[in-house]
Simulated scan of single mutants.
Amino acid sequence: MGAGNQTGVSQFLLLGFSDDPELQPLLCGVFLSMFLVAMLGNLLIILAISTDSHLHTPMYFFLSHLSFVDICFVSTTVPRMLVNIQTQRKDISYIGCFTQVYFFMVFAGMDNFLLTVMAYDRFVAICQPLHYMVIMNPHFCGLLVLTCWLIILFSSLFHVLLMMRLTFCIGTEIPHFFCELTQTLKAACSDTLINNICLYVATVLLCIFPLTGILYSYSQIVSTLIKMASTEGKYKAFSTCVSHLTVVSLFYGTSLGVYLTSAVTHSSQRSSIASVMYTVVTPMLNPFIYSLRNKDVKGALARLLSLCAPCL
């Protein structure tokens, strides 16, 4: 049987990392460990921020949302991969694959948007400190997050609906450990020109523009810091940006690394390994980045753990 649409194709095959049976327990252990650390770390950040009144500020409001999105992000790909490793199966249903594509795009996009919003928050705090609480009021912060959600939900839905018009051959193989949009498009048996054009346009609008916003915000922050007379003031202001800059560098650096790896090597296995960096490693490291250099978060975590200690 040749090509078929969604009524003819019931499942895809995820090739994963390796077919070597000896590597499967190691892969399962490594990814399970990273998944649990990412879940626990981000959950602790959310609990610390929600239970500590000192952290009820715009910066930590956005950070709690970032942690929530990171929990959802790793939950979109890792559990399914662990199930496939344990059962030694590679199949994923047609609906399951498209659902995974949708939610992966949603949470990856929200990570991108939240990092941009957090950069704007730091810009206002440092460049316009007297107007900070007026500009970054709770209503405006909530509206920013809601707008980000609406944009990325409908944008991701648009891409998935475009994918549903494609035809796929029976036994379609996706050379990845999850259903990633570009890899799924490459596996289609019909013309994907419209899909690729829409993908490129969305990438420019939803990735390049936010990154430009982040770079602009920090150019203004640096300009303001240079004009500060107090060295202590410069250090204190910049220290609030270090964690965010680290996360931004990690997220965009690993995403760019995935793109360059797939473009230069054309190796699906290397591309899959590179994808692990921003799909699993980055959400796992974010809680550590924000807590290790932040006295407020460390204090809130210490108070949270002290409250939980008698219950253990």
Rank of each mutant, 00 (worst) to 15 (best):
I273V: 10
I289D: 10
F168H: 04
S50W: 12
F12E: 05
G4T: 13
L63M: 08
V160G: 05
L153S: 02
C198A: 09
H65F: 14
S155Y: 15
V160H: 04
T184C: 15
T265G: 02
S155V: 10
V247P: 03
V297S: 08
P138A: 01
S262W: 09
A187S: 07
A309L: 12
V281N: 07
T76C: 14
S53L: 07
F68A: 15
I214E: 02
L47S: 09
A309D: 12
L250E: 04
S267N: 06
L215I: 02
T265L: 00
H159T: 12
I135M: 06
H176D: 09
S67I: 01
I197G: 00
D121Y: 12
V9A: 00
L13V: 10
Y235K: 15
G29M: 15
T231W: 14
E173Q: 14
G29N: 14
I95G: 07
G233M: 02
Y218W: 14
T192P: 00
Y94T: 04
F107R: 05
V264H: 01
F288N: 11
A125S: 12
Y278F: 11
K298A: 11
I194M: 02
P129K: 00
K227F: 08
N196G: 09
I197R: 06
T87C: 04
T212M: 13
R165P: 12
S291H: 07
L157T: 13
L292K: 12
Y200P: 06
S33H: 05
L114A: 03
L199T: 14
R303M: 07
I71Q: 04
V69D: 03
D52L: 05
T7F: 10
G8A: 10
V30A: 05
S275W: 08
A302F: 15
A300N: 01
V242A: 09
L285T: 09
Y218V: 00
V247E: 05
M39W: 14
H131F: 14
Q6A: 13
V30M: 03
T203Y: 10
P175K: 06
T279L: 12
C169W: 01
D70T: 15
L13W: 15
C207F: 13
A3K: 07
N84W: 02
E173S: 11
M39C: 08
L27A: 04
R303H: 03
A300Y: 03
V134W: 15
S272A: 11
G257V: 01
H159D: 12
L185F: 03
D191I: 01
S33E: 06
E173Y: 07
A187F: 01
V83I: 07
A108T: 14
R122M: 00
C189P: 01
M34Y: 14
Y60D: 08
F158T: 06
S217L: 02
M284Q: 06
L153N: 03
L260T: 00
D91P: 04
C207N: 12
F104K: 05
L225R: 02
P129T: 00
L166S: 10
Y290L: 00
